[in-house]
């Protein structure tokens, strides 16, 4: 009997709560009249950033395309005149992207980053296939410092052998002196 009373009480409280809601002002924020400022790390529209020197960060390592659960990234790597590996073309199919952010997490160069900008809907689905020129931006995104080629061992215009961060001068292979 007690149970029944409890149950009725619980029901009553429930109904009362929802009933009271009827007279509250809705808490909905109405988009697009009001656009809520999103945190910098919200995940939407992807960009390819540049390193502080202004060069393209992406080295076309294929890690983002490998990790992408929906396989929406495709690219072609190539070598440019200074010996840098870069993406000859880079394509993201935003019609497929689920904005999971795994690509950003996999990227060893901080090149690919998700941004809070999410208003990139299109009627024509083909318009959602972004090429490199649509993705490349002129800033560093969230990572202001990193410049991959300063840490790698390969010789590029950023540094020759032995000129990168924490590197000895190259071994002189013609001398046996230590």
């Amino acid at each position: 009997m007690n149970d029944a009373v409890e149950a009725v009480k619980a029901l009553a409280i429930g109904f009362a709560t929802t009933f009271k809601h009827l007279f509250r002002k809705p808490i909905t924020e109405e988009y697009p009249e009001y656009k809520r400022p999103l945190p910098a790390r919200s995940r939407a529209r992807i960009i390819l950033t540049r390193d502080p020197d202004g060069a393209e960060r992406c080295v076309a390592c294929y890690l983002c395309s490998a990790v992408c659960p929906v396989s929406c990234i495709s690219m072609q790597s190539a070598e440019n005149e200074d010996g840098r590996r870069y993406a000859q073309w880079f394509r993201i199919n935003f019609a497929r992207c689920i904005y999971c952010g795994l690509c950003e997490e996999a990227c060893p160069t901080s090149a690919i980053q998700l941004t809070p900008e999410f208003e990139n809907c299109e009627n024509d689905i083909l318009a959602l296939v972004y090429e490199k020129k649509n993705l490349l931006v002129d800033h560093q995104g969230k990572d202001k410092e990193y410049n991959y080629y300063k840490y790698a061992g390969v010789a590029t215009e950023v540094g020759k052998k032995g000129e990168h961060v924490k590197e000895e001068r190259p071994v002189n292979i013609k001398s046996n002196l230590p």
């Binding site: 929802t18 009933f19 809601h21 009827l22 509250r24 002002k25 809705p26 808490i27 909905t28 109405e30």
Partner: peptide
């Protein structure tokens, strides 16, 4: 229903 859930 929306109003019951404080929506529009």
């Amino acid at each position: 229903l929306a109003r019951l859930q404080i929506r529009y």
